[in-house]
């Protein structure tokens, strides 16, 4: 009797694991970022024409260290990026008089400059946005996908990395943390 129970138990355990593997769906993408708590990797990002009069041809991260930064990676094909863009714009409008700097980085979107311009037009994004055409900045930042948003403290360390679209609650919490 005990032996039968043991066999049933082992078969049940293996069957349960098999069913879990089949039913769990997409693997979890929210893998902890290795750069959180460390210095933000430097980059020089070419900006879209509309931002050049105010910010120059490119955005050099080193020139902006000392300010809290919100860096958002997006792509023109990414549906959640359309969801978060108005939220980002409204927070930029609210915070642009402080020393916080927002930056949008279009990535994994090779040569899609026109689609990028359409995206910027659609949401009237007034904070600087540029194109990481070869995805070099993305790899250097350990990006897993889009959208991803990084909150950088004044000392240049990464405070938080968010996978998925930003919400007002996340922006409230992490803007407060990097403004501290």
């Amino acid at each position: 009797m005990r032996r039968v129970l043991l066999i049933v138990g082992v078969i049940g355990l293996l069957g349960g694991l098999f069913a879990y593997g089949l039913l769990r769906g997409e693997p979890d993408r929210d893998i902890p970022s290795a750069i959180v708590g460390r210095q933000a990797p430097s980059f020089v990002l070419p900006l879209y024409e509309r931002y050049q009069p105010e910010y120059g041809e490119s955005f050099t991260l080193a020139d902006h260290l000392g300010k809290p930064l919100v860096i958002n990676f997006w792509a023109s094909w990414c549906a959640p990026c359309y969801e978060e863009a108005p939220v980002l714009q409204s927070y930029w409008e609210r915070y642009q008089d402080t020393d916080v700097q927002f930056l949008g980085i279009q990535t994994q979107d090779r040569q899609q400059f026109d689609a990028g311009r359409q995206f910027l037009d659609q949401f009237g994004l007034s904070f600087p946005n540029g194109m990481d055409d070869a995805s070099a900045v993305s790899v250097n930042w350990g990006l897993f996908g889009v959208p991803e948003t990084y909150f950088i403290r004044r000392d240049g360390t990464v405070e938080h990395r968010l996978v998925g679209p930003v919400t007002a609650a996340v922006l409230d919490e992490h803007l407060a943390a990097i403004l501290r």
């Binding site: 090779r110 995805s135 990006l143």
Partner: peptide, 11 residues
């Protein structure tokens, strides 16, 4: 063949 993988190979 993803763009990010191509960039990683280039790196």
């Amino acid at each position: 063949n993803a763009q990010l993988a191509q960039q990683m190979r280039q790196m």
